[in-house]
């Protein structure tokens, strides 16, 4: 039986990718003005950014309950005898804990392995994509756990955005605190290091920040998977993807949207790139 791959909505795996690869996406929650929306289910990404820019109240996010995971496990247990769950890092969210607790409360019998990735966004998404492809080719659960753990250090993520305001409001700044409160207009380049948000660069213009992303990708000697995601800037992203065609076949680049859960923290101008490969 083919092992089923489950991930959370912070992986930014789109509905289309999930359908194609047979990945199940468990939504985190976005709380806006007292109302809870399931990420990507109750509110589309576009609706979310519309609200984010126009409403004064800052949204917060919350972890899915263990029951949400256990229901997914129970449903998948009818189709498989092995489930691999890949979640966002533990320093960024308690979703991994919830995924573990879901195992305790599930009713059916099925092997479930949880890998807490210490990553987020498409960096996490690429792990799920690589695992789903390997599962389709017949890899067993233990093999997939090893593959995913081996892949974690091979995934890199860089995000640029215009303002630190949103990250700031959300309080998830981590070591990027060092970039805070700058008096100059700066486009920060952030990534994740040791499970925490980490400052990788500070560029003086948007164009240079995008150059930074390009050079980051070009610095890899071998690229297995590549993903680009944005929030509300499709034209700019389109041009960037075109440029990336010089280092990786364009048709193989996964395109996605920054999920509202992360969007809450990075704001509408974010563009991110994730690479699975070797430097």
């Amino acid at each position: 039986m083919v092992v089923k791959v489950v991930t959370d909505s912070v992986s930014d795996i789109s509905h289309a990718m999930a359908d194609e690869l047979g990945v199940t996406v468990v939504p985190l929650n976005v709380v806006f003005n007292g109302y809870t929306y399931r990420d990507g289910v109750d509110m589309t990404t576009d609706e979310f950014y519309e609200k984010l820019e126009h409403e004064e109240i800052h949204p917060t996010t919350s972890t899915p309950a263990p029951q949400v995971f256990s229901e997914v496990y129970d449903r998948l247990a009818d189709e498989t005898d092995g489930i691999l769950v890949i979640t966002i890092g533990s320093k960024l969210s308690a979703t991994g804990e919830s995924a573990f607790k879901g195992i305790e409360v599930m009713k059916k019998k099925c092997r479930v392995a949880v890998v807490v990735s210490e990553l987020a966004m498409m960096a996490e998404g690429l792990l799920a994509i690589a695992a789903a492809k390997a599962a389709r080719d017949g890899a067993g659960l233990d093999e997939l756990v090893k593959l995913t753990n081996d892949n974690i250090p091979r995934v890199g993520l860089r995000i640029v955005f215009d303002t630190l305001e949103y990250l700031h409001r959300g309080g998830r700044i981590g070591k990027a605190q060092a970039l805070m409160g700058s008096m100059l207009g700066i486009n920060p380049v952030l990534g994740i290091k040791d499970g925490e948000v980490f400052p990788f660069g500070r560029e003086r213009s948007r164009a240079r920040a995008i150059d930074h992303l390009y050079e980051f990708v070009a610095g890899y000697s071998r690229i297995d998977e590549l993903a680009v995601e944005d929030a509300t800037t499709p034209d700019e992203t389109g041009a960037f993807v075109k440029r990336l065609g010089a280092v990786f076949p364009r048709e193989r680049i996964y395109l996605s949207k920054v999920s509202p859960v992360i969007g809450t923290n990075v704001g509408p101008s974010a563009i991110g790139v994730a690479v699975l490969g070797d430097k």
Binding site: S62, T63, A65, A94, E97, S98, E165, H168, R169, G171, I173, Q177, M180, G181, S182, M183
Partner: peptide, 18 residues
């Protein structure tokens, strides 16, 4: 209360430059 078991309070960040 269930949510409180899973989550953690957040430290407020000030927007005043360091």
């Amino acid at each position: 209360t269930e949510l409180m078991r899973l989550r953690k309070p957040q430290i407020i960040v000030s927007d005043i430059p360091h």
